[in-house]
C-alpha cells in the first residue's frame, strides 16, 4: 500500500520532468497550426519548422563551432590538467604547496570579478570573434587539476619508479602509465568539462559578434530573444531541439557516467 503511493508520486514527478522535452520534440515536427496545442500526438508530420530554421540561422555551422570549442577545451583540460596534477601529486619541488593553494584560491574566486577585465584582455589580444577567445580562458580548470591530483595520489609510486628505470620520461609516464590507470578520472573530468563548455552561453555572448563563429547555445539564445522567431514557435522549438539533442543522446547512452561525474564534481567542490 505504502509502496503504491510512492510509485504514484514518482510517476507523476517523472512525467513533470520528461513531458516538456517530449512536447518540445512533438511540437517541432507538428504542422504550424497545431504547435500551440500542447498535445503529444500531432495529426500530421512536418519538417517545415526545421527547413525554416536552417534558412534563417547558420545552425549547422554553429554545431561545428560548438564541437570544435568544446572538444578543444576538454582535450586541453585533460592534457594540461593531468600534467599539473601529476607534478603536484608525485613530484617534489619548491613552491609546490604555494601553487596548490593558488589553485584552491582560484576555485573560490567568483567569475563575476573577472568577466569585464577578461573581455578587455581578449580585445587587447585580438581574439574577439575567434576560436582563441572562446577556448583559451577555459584551457585550465582548477577543479580538474584537483581531481587529477587526488586520483594520481592513489596510484602506487612503484609503477612510476619502474617506468623511470625503463627510461621513461615524465610525459611518457603521464600519458602511457598514468592515463591507462586513470580512466574513471578522465571520464569524469571529460564529461564535466565538455558539458560545461557545450552549455556555456554568457562568455560566447561577450566575445563573439560574428554570426558565423557563434556557438549553438549562443545562436539559439539570440534567435529566441532577438524577435526573429516571433510568432513562429515551431522554428524556435526546432532550434531548441537541435541544441538539446546531442547532449540528450549522449546522456541516454552514458547516463550512469553523467550522473556519477556531475555528482562527484558537486561533492568535491
Amino acid at each position: 500500500m505504502k509502496k503504491a503511493i510512492f510509485y504514484i508520486v514518482l510517476v507523476i514527478a517523472a512525467l513533470l520532468f520528461i513531458y516538456p522535452f517530449i512536447w518540445m520534440i512533438a511540437a517541432s515536427i507538428a504542422p504550424e497550426n497545431e504547435i500551440g496545442t500542447l498535445t503529444l500526438l500531432p495529426s500530421g508530420f512536418s519538417l517545415d519548422s526545421y527547413f525554416q530554421m536552417f534558412d534563417k540561422i547558420p545552425i549547422g555551422r554553429a554545431f561545428v563551432n560548438s564541437m570544435i570549442v568544446a572538444s578543444s577545451i576538454t582535450l586541453g583540460v585533460l592534457v594540461l590538467g593531468s600534467m599539473v596534477g601529476y607534478a603536484l601529486s608525485k613530484l617534489e619541488f619548491k613552491g609546490r604547496d604555494l601553487i596548490f593553494y593558488i589553485i584552491i584560491f582560484t576555485m573560490t574566486l567568483p567569475f563575476q570579478i573577472t568577466l569585464i577585465p577578461q573581455y578587455l584582455l581578449i580585445v587587447k589580444l585580438g581574439w574577439v570573434d575567434s576560436y582563441m577567445g572562446l577556448i583559451m580562458p577555459y584551457l585550465m580548470n582548477a577543479l580538474g587539476i584537483i581531481m587529477f591530483r587526488q586520483y594520481f595520489k592513489t596510484i602506487p609510486q612503484d609503477l612510476i619508479d619502474a617506468a623511470r628505470l625503463d627510461g621513461c620520461g615524465e610525459l611518457k609516464i603521464i600519458f602511457r602509465i598514468l592515463w591507462p590507470n586513470s580512466i574513471p578520472a578522465l571520464v569524469t573530468i571529460g564529461i564535466i568539462t565538455f558539458m560545461a563548455s557545450w552549455n556555456e552561453v554568457l562568455w560566447p555572448l561577450i566575445v563573439i559578434r560574428d554570426e558565423a563563429l557563434m556557438t549553438m547555445p549562443q545562436l539559439v539564445t539570440l534567435f529566441a530573444v532577438g524577435g526573429r522567431a516571433d510568432s513562429q514557435l515551431g522554428v524556435k522549438l526546432a532550434a531548441a531541439v537541435m541544441l538539446a539533442l546531442p547532449i540528450i543522446i549522449a546522456y541516454l547512452f552514458f547516463q550512469k557516467y553523467f550522473i556519477q561525474s556531475m555528482a562527484s564534481s558537486g561533492i568535491k567542490e
Binding site: V201, V220, A244, I248, I259
Partner: peptide
C-alpha cells in the same frame, strides 16, 4: 536528472 544536462537556454 535529464534537465540538469540540458542547456539552460532550452
Amino acid at each position: 536528472f535529464l534537465p540538469v544536462v540540458v542547456s539552460g537556454v532550452v
